[in-house]
């Protein structure tokens, strides 16, 4: 037991040190990098907000447009950025593996947590700014908001570690994953509600776990927005399976890590 506890202590220490280190490097050399994370998200939200209001497409179930779009884009940025950065987490930090207490998985954990924390702050800042300018902001069920973000974290970490391991074994992964993420951008209901689509489409698109966390987040913001589409067992199961698979693949792929280069 002490071996396990000491190991865990070391891992927490290493992940913390990595996070502090990556804080300065992940979003560019300057602190402005974090401002850009906000600007990027805000820009997309504003564009789709403008488009929706021009087309008179008010979001369904009485949720306000800005909050509706925020509920779509935050999980999206969280997930896609975490996965994108996990792919290169090992390649970009190979030299750190020379320190025996640093494990490949720590690099992925640190990056995913840092990306998550960043977009959590972006979300809070965005809500605060909306509120400050007198826009009706609702935060009906904070517990659901947190649950949605926790599930996004689990999904990001699971998918991120799978992609990272695949990339160690087969570097074309780094080219294929952005393609798949692009498709997810258009099909996860970021700037529309899946309930606005024909039933035949809804049936397919609900296999995408990201749609579930997005709908859950919107429900957390405004309880009038139903979460009848959200299947918690499905998302949780999906997250657990990807986590398990990610850990297995990470273990298996260690032998392929070429530490010399």
């Amino acid at each position: 037991m002490t071996v396990l506890r000491d190991g865990l202590k070391t891992q927490v220490r290493v992940v913390r040190a990595l996070m502090l280190r990556e804080t300065k490097t992940l979003f560019g050399k300057h602190k402005l990098g974090y401002v850009w994370a906000f600007i990027q998200a805000a820009f997309l939200i504003l564009i789709f907000w403008a488009l929706r209001s021009r087309g008179n497409m008010h979001p369904p179930f009485g949720i306000s447009s800005a909050v509706f779009l925020l509920g779509g884009f935050i999980p999206w940025f969280f997930f896609s950025e975490a996965v994108n950065r996990s792919i290169n987490a090992i390649g970009g930090n190979m030299a750190l593996l020379a320190y025996p207490q640093v494990f490949p998985l720590d690099l992925i954990i640190a990056r995913t947590l840092l990306v998550g924390a960043t977009y959590f702050c972006v979300m809070v800042l965005f809500l605060a700014l909306l509120g400050l300018y007198g826009y009706p902001v609702t935060l009906d069920q904070p517990a659901m908001v947190l649950l949605s973000l926790a599930l996004t974290l689990a999904l990001s970490f699971g998918v991120g570690s799978i992609c990272s391991a695949l990339n160690v074994m087969q570097p074309t992964t780094a080219r294929i994953v952005p393609m798949l993420l692009r498709i997810m951008f258009f099909t996860s209901g970021l700037f529309f509600s899946l309930s606005e689509l024909p039933l035949s489409l809804q049936e397919i698109l609900y296999y995408n776990p990201l749609s579930h966390v997005i709908e859950l987040l919107r429900n957390g913001f405004a309880s009038s927005y139903p979460r009848s589409f959200v299947s918690l067992p499905y998302v949780t199961g999906f997250a657990l399976v990807t986590l398990a698979l990610g850990l297995l693949l990470e273990r298996y792929s260690r032998q392929f890590i070429d530490r010399e280069s």
């Binding site: 290493v14 990595l18 280190r21 030299a95 320190y99």
Partner: peptide, 24 residues
């Protein structure tokens, strides 16, 4: 003399902190 673990865009002091942290 192994210095491969240093991050080029971080200062000597920042790199030092990282190494000190992982070795407690």
């Amino acid at each position: 003399g192994f210095s491969g673990g240093f991050h080029g865009s971080l200062t000597g002091r920042e790199n030092l902190r990282f190494i000190a942290r992982i070795y407690a």
